[in-house]
Design a binder for these strands. Structure first.
Lengths: 275, 275
DNA sequence: TATACTAATGACCAATCGGTCAATTTGTCA
DNA sequence: TGACAAATTGACCGATTGGTCATTAGTATA
């Protein structure tokens, strides 16, 4: 494990239990068994550390949820969404705790921006899933439904994270599917009406721009030592600069790199870019 | 306004926007136009300040909600519960923000204890309300329902507090009544099953003990300058030491002091004590 | 006006913070 | 082994924190 990874892992443990502000760099370095100086060889600042932590896990979880939703039949999408969400947050319980603590609290502007971006991306995933599952029957309550679902998830998540009980991911997913169905089919008095529609789009550019994407690919090529990955990446890079292949070939190339967990995030963004 | 009240009001504004830890005593005193020394004449420490703030509003809100629920017909209880809850939190929006920020974050033990107590008291109010409204039909899902309701409330509250939109308390209450009814009548797969029952009682002594109550009464007698209140308080004090009156008379005496907002909290606890 | 008392001040304290950097250890060559 | 480079250290820095206390300002009484 690289020193950077070590610091991120150990720091996350402390952040989850004490919060970001309340954890000193000294505590982190003690907990890692390294010196303060060594910390600043891996990270420019304490802020950069938490940004990298948040980034890493948000990418991981976003990709998993997106995959689960897009690769299941319409009548199973809800279940897989909830299942993946709870599975991911419980696998990375420390991160989930950190996320909850800092969500309401943080004053690091870049961090807030990241969290807001994540929130909007979740809204988008939920919205498109609900539209696929229920069609336009829920048009007048869809934003209300999004808030209800997020509220329910949060309630259960709080319970799971801060109690010591072990629990059944399958059950929580089934329970939430039933509740979502109930609300989607029978709610007649939405509180979040469609006049708030702009809240769900404004200032959100889910797709990365060319430049960021090319940067990511360049890094990925350097880090990869599997030839088929490297070649796929080079071809994809050319396609971004000047698209000539059809969609099927592009998807195949993306699939070539998606299998490597390190490149999941890149694959996810490439897919969004070419759509 | 007393100096203590001034500090509490002004500090709350800062806490709501920056969080407790991130707000320095210097900032508070600057914002009040007083010196640092003057602050420590009113409060022993920064911790004591936030404890008094939280205490004050929790008492206020608890009493209002309890009254709304217990003084309405069964078929209107839900509506009044939600209406009062949202009305209270939006009237004291700064406090609501503080509560949300510190709920996940705080490391002051006494504060955490207070917040936990408040949480359990809310659970109790919700539980007894649901039992009254739906009877034993919801026995197998009542704990699940409590978590669902708290989740929904939190979701909407977050939306209301941190967006700039004005909103309709009546609508949010009606919307939540409908959702609660839907869930109560049709949920068949609870996630929080009755095996968690002990979570909802353990370590919770809602009722104050004799000593605390007598202390509160003594303070109230000193502060009051209305004769009927003072006399009622003196009689109630005697009844705590040695009960002789019947319940109707006791309730009447309590009602005598309940009309004064300053004594709402005392009245609420006396009612609980004599039940 | 002199006295006695409280209310209020802000310079000051030790502790802790994030961050730096000269000095030292460690690793890697010929 | 010796010479060089890279990695690592921890004493140190200025800034800020919650909290203290000798001093001053304000006011009512005699």
């Amino acid at each position: 494990m690289s020193k950077k990874q070590l610091i991120m892992d150990r720091a996350l443990e402390l952040f989850a239990n004490q919060g970001f502000e309340a954890t000193s760099v000294q505590q982190i370095t003690d907990h890692c068994g390294i010196s303060k100086g060594a910390f600043y060889l891996s990270f420019k600042s304490k802020d950069e550390l938490i940004l990298e932590i948040i980034n890493h896990f948000i990418q991981q979880i976003t990709v998993d949820i997106d995959y689960a939703v897009n690769h299941s039949k319409p009548d199973e999408k809800l279940y897989h969404f909830f299942h993946t969400t709870f599975h991911a947050f419980c696998e990375h319980a420390d991160f989930a705790k950190l996320l909850m603590k800092e969500h309401a609290h943080s004053f690091n502007e870049k961090l807030l921006e990241k969290l807001h971006d994540y929130d909007q991306r979740t809204d988008q995933i939920l919205l498109s899933m609900l539209e696929t599952v229920y069609g336009d029957k829920i048009d007048h309550i869809k934003y209300d439904l999004i808030f209800s679902i997020k509220g329910l998830i949060n309630g259960y998540l709080n319970f799971l994270l801060f109690s010591q009980h072990q629990f059944d991911v399958d059950l929580v997913a089934k329970s939430l599917v039933e509740k979502t169905n109930l609300l989607a089919r029978h709610v007649t008095i939405p509180f979040i009406t469609n006049k708030y529609e702009n809240m769900f789009q404004k200032n959100f550019h889910g797709k990365m721009d060319k430049h960021d994407l090319l940067q990511l690919i360049a890094t990925a090529i350097d880090e990869s030592d599997i030839i088929i990955e490297q070649e796929s990446l080079i071809l994809l890079k050319e396609q971004i600069i000047e698209p000539t292949f059809n969609k099927t070939i592009l998807l195949g190339l993306i699939e070539n790199i998606r299998n490597n967990p390190q490149h999941k995030w890149l694959a996810y963004n490439l897919k969004e870019y070419f759509n």
